[in-house]
């Protein structure tokens, strides 16, 4: 079915078994993002230690795409240097905005490549990006904080 391009196994797996979906008690930055068109919401806690993303945890309500996407993000970006995380972030955003023209680098995006099908459904791109935008926002705040410390 055509829809299977969108709802890849990996996505449905992450949706049914979301990773790191429990807010950590300790964090450098905490953000709350909403998708005003559908009411989806996410809280995301982030810790960056010595320039490395050391912990991402989250909680929220949303569709399978938004939930799976943030679940995948936590596995993909935890343990990465922040610069590396931003490179992955940029590639993921470019993939989402590609209207299906780009297939994405699986070496870089790993499981997130499963979300490639989303780029053909313009209404769903915001869902896939909800957690990523929350991560970006939190990372900026966390780094600003570490400069102050």
């Amino acid at each position: 079915m055509q829809l299977d391009n969108l709802y890849q196994e990996v996505i449905l797996d992450h949706y049914k078994h979301p990773q790191n979906k429990k807010l950590s008690a300790n964090y450098d930055a905490q953000v709350h993002h909403v998708n005003p068109s559908c009411g989806d919401e996410i809280d995301l806690n982030l810790t960056i230690k010595d320039g490395i993303v050391s912990d991402i945890s989250w909680d929220g309500v949303g569709c399978s795409i938004s939930q799976a996407s943030v679940s995948i993000l936590t596995e993909l970006l935890t343990g990465k240097k922040i610069d590396e995380a931003y490179l992955i972030f940029d590639q993921f955003v470019a993939l989402m905005q590609s209207k299906g023209a780009v297939s994405g680098d699986e070496m870089v995006l790993e499981d997130a490549i499963a979300l490639a099908g989303v780029s053909k459904y313009p209404a769903r791109i915001k869902c896939a990006l909800l957690g990523w935008m929350a991560f970006k926002d939190a990372s900026v705040q966390a780094q600003a904080k570490s400069k102050l410390d």
């Binding site: 829809l3 969108l6 709802y7 559908c38 949303g62 569709c63 795409i65 459904y121 769903r124």
Partner: peptide, 12 residues
């Protein structure tokens, strides 16, 4: 089932 997922399935 989230309405957005249901809506997508119905659209299909």
């Amino acid at each position: 089932i989230h309405p957005h997922d249901l809506g997508q399935f119905l659209d299909n």
